[in-house]
Design a binder for these strands. Sequence first.
RNA 1: UGGGGUGUCGCCAAGCGGUAAGGCACGGGACUUUGACUCCCGCAUUCGUAGGUUCGAAUCCUGCCACCCCAG
Length: 360
Amino acid sequence: MARIVVGMSGGVDSSVAALLLHRAGHEVIGVFMKNWEETDADGVCTAEADWADVRAVCDGIGIPYYSVNFAQEYRDRVFSYFLEEYQAGRTPNPDVLCNREIKFKAFLDFALKLGAEHLATGHFARIGEARERRTLLRGVDANKDQSYFLHMLGQNALGKAMFPVGGLTKAEVREIARQENLPTCNKKDSTGICFIGERDFKQFLQTYLPAQPGDMRELDTGRVVGRHDGLMYHTLGQRRGLDIGGCGDGRSWFVVGKDLTNNVLLVAQGEDHSALYTTGALAIQETWVAGEPPVGLGTPFRCTAKYRYRQPDQAVTILRTAEGLRVTADDPQRAVTPGQSVVLYDGDVCLGGGVIDHMW
RNA sequence: UGGGGUGUCGCCAAGCGGUAAGGCACGGGACUUUGACUCCCGCAUUCGUAGGUUCGAAUCCUGCCACCCCAG
């Protein structure tokens, strides 16, 4: 019997997380975070509806609930970085930062101040133990595993975190919610940037960053094949939005690079174009769940990696160097992108990861 | 202006008298706690325009318009 704060989003997963802990006899407190103040382009504030769902779920379970606002922290520690990265021509992953800086730092501190022993969320991941240390494990449901987004968590956060639904499948979670008649049992999974939600990306960025239109050039020939409204609106491997039609041999065009100094978007034709594939990548800002890397500098280490969320595991060899982590894949990887996270695994154990700086 | 050529969806492009392929782009949806990729669906009652021939034309004929090339 412990006091546990559950971070509740208004979705099924965190609803069931709270329910399970309550059933287990813990003193559960539901807390909803509002970290983004603006409504979306249509004037809809989904946060209001989510908060209403949290209240309904907590009332149904019979636990107290609160709402907290970390909008300031979110802007300072996550969103500002998000904008800086886009301005620098990279493609950031705000959600991995959000987990480290907000959910499992600012919010965790808040929970501890409430006298909670643990902070639980509805993430599909598990916590294990090995050699006196906490380990981060994949969620049992391979299709919903969210360890990718949690790879920046360290021993301190994992020592307090709980993931009650990590051992369940999504179907089981929904079934439990249905049996208990939780109002969120049939709610659609949320997507989009955490706390901000699904947006028209270009429109969204437009309101925060000035854009500089420029040329789009074919990588192989250098010829101009179109115009772009701003390099930040495109990311490597992207197809949609280029607006190039009837040009070349009829195949689709993809973004293969950004020439920042000339403000030129480099594109190539065909989904199998060689410029879309690389095997080597340098990851910087490496973080390790265990608090330290699995091997020392200069010693190659075999493991698997995900270069993006939900990607099947890729066999890689990592080598720690003074510049960063060199990640070499056995097979060519498509559209590895600077700013994105490469997350490493040893079996079911998430080791940590780094931010992709460049590829070759 | 004289000679030749071309005008079919935003772009490329089939069609050659029998009632508008396809690709790209775009839009919508599915998938998805980043950004992407991927998948599915949709997308010209109309063929530069005005007439004519024909049971029937984008396909044949005529005028006009536009653009391109060669002459000049």
